[in-house]
Write a protein that binds this DNA or RNA. Structure first.
Lengths: 200, 200
DNA sequence: ATTGCGATGTGAACACTGTTTACTTCTAGT
DNA sequence: ACTAGAAGTAAACAGTGTTCACATCGCAAT
């Protein structure tokens, strides 16, 4: 709520640019996120962005990383909540994953576009691994935790089906006519079918 | 092998442009596919593309559709082959899906980028549905085939896990260091874990 | 307080993109 | 042989990411 006077130095430009990407992506999709539009939104010249990000791609990488952490946060919360209530933790985490994809499709897309981000960026990689961790958390009892880079077939099945459904909802021909709730119900049913495979 | 003299009218420009997209995407990724580069590769002026496609997006849609059909072809072949040999049809079809994604990552990406194609295009939609058909073909006995627009939870589980793994391979942090064969083995193991859920 | 320096923001330019326009060239059907 | 229209072109336009010389500021050392 602070009324910021326009001063020559912005102060938090790096962060503010991420916010701009956030807003533009939410409203108009990732494809509409342009460096110049972000700069204008922040009230700054286009060139200034390059003082904080070497590239447009670097900016998008930072944004993807941030989105990964938001998703991880949601999954963590859902997992803990389920744990406290004695509910199915994996189910909760998976639903959080899918819900995020449905509510923030542009973010979900941005996270996984290797060609538009620097996928080798350490921060990005760390965030992605954190994510994978939360997903396998659901059946941590049945699985021996190995090298986090190595996914067991069961972990892979869990992540793949959840990620796959989210992807098909966001960028595929599945349930295109259905609304949010219907899709969530569909997800719930799919997870129910997955369950026996996870506990076998 | 025909030595084509340069004539004013190209003759098969629409198709040739698709070939150009194919080559550019294969070599440099989807992000590098530019209308002008395609035109130059075909030996034609940039503007000529607009006689055949209303948009760059329309061109990419046509390309995505073509890629979908290529994948469908591979799946069909794999499925029939497995059927003849009494092998597991679903496994064969699923492996074909994943193999395609591994071998033609740029194509796989192009197929599912709703923001860069016209996802409502009837040809595109038809191709996508054909695909879904082949995937559920594997356990067609256990499932009552309903409205093709409606996916049963079991079909969804099947497609999601296969599509999800392919996506994670292509655009995710899974098995990044591994080579093609290792990934295929990983896929095989995952499918083995999925099996009980499909036959339950 | 003044200075000066490094960090941060700017304006103008560059090459490149998709797209439109008025125009040319050729093909196909009479 | 003629011609309507399909197919290709050159030149221009606005918009993109990016660079570079320059302007402005915050801050630490004097």
């Amino acid at each position: 709520m602070e009324k910021e006077k326009k001063r020559y130095h912005h102060g938090h430009l790096a962060e503010s640019l991420l916010d701009a990407v956030d807003e533009l992506a939410s409203q108009f999709g990732i494809e509409a996120v342009t460096l110049r539009a972000c700069a204008k939104r922040v009230g700054v010249s286009p060139a200034s962005a390059f003082r904080h990000y070497v590239d447009k791609r670097a900016l998008l990488t930072a944004f993807a990383t941030r989105a990964l952490h938001q998703l991880a946060e949601a999954m963590d919360k859902a997992g803990r909540q389920a744990g406290e209530q004695g509910a199915d933790a994996f189910h909760a985490v998976a639903m959080a994953y899918i819900t995020f994809a449905l509510d923030k499709p542009a973010f979900f897309r941005a996270m996984w576009r290797e060609e538009t981000i620097y996928a080798r960026d350490p921060d990005y990689l760390a965030a992605a691994e954190r994510l994978a961790g939360y997903l396998s958390e659901g059946f941590v009892n049945t699985i021996v935790d190995e090298d986090p880079h190595d996914f067991s077939p069961l972990e892979l099945l869990a992540w793949s089906s959840v990620h796959g459904l989210a992807s098909l909802f966001v960028d595929g021909p599945v349930a295109r006519g259905s609304d949010r709730l219907q899709k969530l119900v569909l997800a719930d049913h799919m997870l129910a079918r997955l369950r026996p495979a996870l506990t076998a």
